[in-house]
Simulated assay, not measured.
Amino acid sequence: MIHPERQHLVRTRELLARDMGMSMGTFRNKKPYTAEGFPAPISSPQSRVLLWDGEQTAAYLADAPVPDLPPAGGDQDLLDRHEAAAEIGVKTRSWDSYKTDPLLAHHMVVVCGIEHWPRGTVQTFQHTRPGKSGATGRPKGKGNAVRRDQLHARVAALLDAEPTITISQVCDALGVAPATAQRALANLRRERIAQVAGQSSLSYAEAAERLGFPPAVRRAALKSLQSVHE
Rank of each mutant, 00 (worst) to 15 (best):
G37N: 10
Q199T: 03
Q126P: 03
I88F: 13
H8Q: 15
L174G: 01
D68R: 15
S94P: 00
E14W: 09
V10E: 11
Q123C: 08
V111L: 01
V90T: 02
T128V: 15
R11T: 00
D53A: 02
L69T: 09
A40D: 11
R190G: 02
T57C: 05
A157D: 10
P32N: 14
S43E: 06
T57E: 04
R18Y: 05
D75G: 03
T100M: 04
N144M: 00
A64K: 15
C171T: 15
L185E: 08
T128K: 15
R48Y: 06
K140Q: 09
F38Y: 15
H116T: 03
R210F: 02
P67H: 03
A205D: 11
Q169H: 14
G37Y: 07
R147T: 12
F213N: 03
D75A: 13
Y204M: 09
G134K: 11
T100K: 10
R183N: 07
A197C: 01
W117A: 00
R129T: 01
D149M: 02
D80E: 08
P102M: 00
M22C: 06
A156L: 12
A194L: 04
H229P: 08
P45H: 02
T166D: 05
I114M: 12
L15C: 10
R11K: 14
L188C: 11
K223M: 07
W52F: 05
H82D: 11
V111W: 11
P163L: 05
Q123K: 15
A84S: 11
Y204K: 07
T136K: 11
R154I: 01
G143H: 07
I193S: 00
H82L: 03
Q195S: 09
Q7R: 13
L222N: 03
G143W: 00
R93T: 13
I193D: 00
P178F: 05
A17P: 04
F38I: 06
F125W: 09
L158N: 05
E87Q: 12
D96R: 04
T34M: 06
A135Y: 12
L9K: 14
D80V: 08
A208W: 02
I114R: 07
I114Q: 13
H152M: 10
E87T: 14
I114L: 11
L16N: 09
Q195R: 12
T180F: 03
A207Q: 03
T26L: 14
G212V: 01
R189K: 00
Q169F: 02
G74I: 06
D63I: 04
R129M: 12
E5C: 00
L9Y: 15
M22S: 11
H82V: 09
A220S: 10
R93Q: 10
P32H: 08
R190D: 09
L78E: 04
R219H: 14
A221T: 07
G198A: 01
S47M: 13
P102G: 02
Q169A: 14
L188S: 08
V49T: 08
D149V: 05
T57Y: 06
L104Y: 04
S201Y: 10
S23Q: 01
T166L: 10
D68N: 14
R192W: 05
D149K: 06
H127A: 15
Y98E: 07
A208Q: 06
E5L: 13
G73K: 10
A179T: 12
P102V: 02
D101T: 01
L15R: 14
A194M: 13
G113C: 03
Q7I: 11
Q199V: 00
R190K: 06
A181S: 11
L159N: 07
P4K: 02
L211V: 06
H152I: 09
S201I: 12
